[in-house]
């Protein structure tokens, strides 16, 4: 197993390199200029030219690319073109917020989605099935920012139960957690729809499968059949889906981060894109790709635990 993990990590290096190369060049080809973005539209043309020089944007592209790779090899993520601060500082500040939000949203998706899926599968083609379907699809049809606004209006403004916007430091865990609940719901409800529909589909396949019938024939109670066999067999697609959600959550949480004014990696990434902060963007992408590689690896490893038929080698 350890050898497998090591090999996968080694294999990840070319992936990472490919991603970085594409990102490096694409952000520079896309129209927009960091010097103008940094100085504002009031700045004169000379000032912009001077800024470009200072930012090192007049260096040949291949030279900038090699510098970037060389720095990276030394573990240096470089400095932001716009703020001049070390990017690693910015990332390590926001990363815990993002990971926390992603985990909380996944928990929401699993806690709501899997039970809805199981129940609607067991009560297939009844009213309960239809209600479950519509409830989970409503969450999917509402964009996260719309959902966020509605949640904020109900829970923060009308009921006054939870804080509306902002975040609290990790050193104040009680307050901190209060700030996570609404954003996690806004994100997690979208996942709930996917999770519920897929769990239902998987469960229905499994419930009609041979080994379940065998288990039933053996005289196991319905509940035992469900827990011991059906759910376990259904875990593979659920694990895959959770992995994919973890990935898209980190990238797409930006909307929720903006609506709730939370710090986060998604926001940092979009901000850097808007400001054409090349150095920040490419370094954020390094971290982002690393996270994805780890999540994919974890997903693949979990397969082997939930389904002994899958072997990795």
């Amino acid at each position: 197993m350890l050898r497998y993990i090591l090999r996968r990590l080694l294999l990840a290096i070319p992936t990472l390199l490919a991603v970085l190369t594409v990102i490096f060049f694409i952000v520079r080809v896309a129209p927009g200029d960091p010097a103008t973005a940094a100085l504002g539209d009031y700045a004169s043309a000379e000032a912009v030219a001077a800024m470009r020089e200072r930012m090192g944007l007049n260096e040949p592209l291949w030279k900038q690319y090699l510098t970037f790779l060389a720095d990276l090899a030394r573990g240096d993520l470089g400095r932001s073109l716009i703020t001049g601060k070390p990017i690693s500082e910015q990332i390590s500040f926001v990363l815990p917020y993002t990971v926390e939000l992603a985990i909380a949203a996944i928990v929401v998706g699993l806690i709501l989605g899997v039970p809805i899926g199981v129940i609607t599968a067991l009560r297939r083609n009844t009213l309960i099935d239809d209600i479950g379907r519509i409830v989970s699809l409503v969450g999917l049809s509402l964009p996260a920012f719309y959902l966020g606004i509605i949640l904020m209006f109900v829970f923060a403004v009308k009921l006054g139960l939870l804080p509306s916007v902002g975040s609290a430091p990790f050193s104040n865990p009680g307050k901190h957690l209060q700030h996570v609940i609404l954003p996690a719901l806004a994100l997690g409800l979208i996942e709930t729809a996917y999770m519920a529909r897929m769990t239902r589909s998987v469960m229905m396949g499994i419930l009609s499968d041979d080994f379940i019938r065998t288990a039933r024939a053996k005289g196991l109670t319905e509940r035992m059949v469900l827990i011991r066999h059906a759910l376990r067999a259904g875990l593979i697609p659920i694990v895959s889906l959770t992995g994919i959600f973890a990935i898209s959550l980190i990238g797409s949480s930006v909307v929720v981060e903006e609506v709730f004014a939370r710090p986060g990696l998604g926001r940092l990434m979009v901000g850097a894109t808007k400001q054409r902060d090349y150095t920040a963007l490419q370094s954020i992408m390094v971290v982002y790709s690393l996270i994805i590689i780890v999540i994919n690896l974890m997903t693949d490893i979990i397969y082997t635990f939930v389904d002994p038929r899958v072997r990795i080698d």
Partner: peptide, 19 residues
């Protein structure tokens, strides 16, 4: 000073007393 690009959430933040 907080950067909040979404006007609806700024309004709700005001109404909730967080801004």
């Amino acid at each position: 000073l907080r950067f909040m690009p979404d006007v609806s959430s700024r309004e709700l933040g005001l109404q909730a007393g967080d801004l």
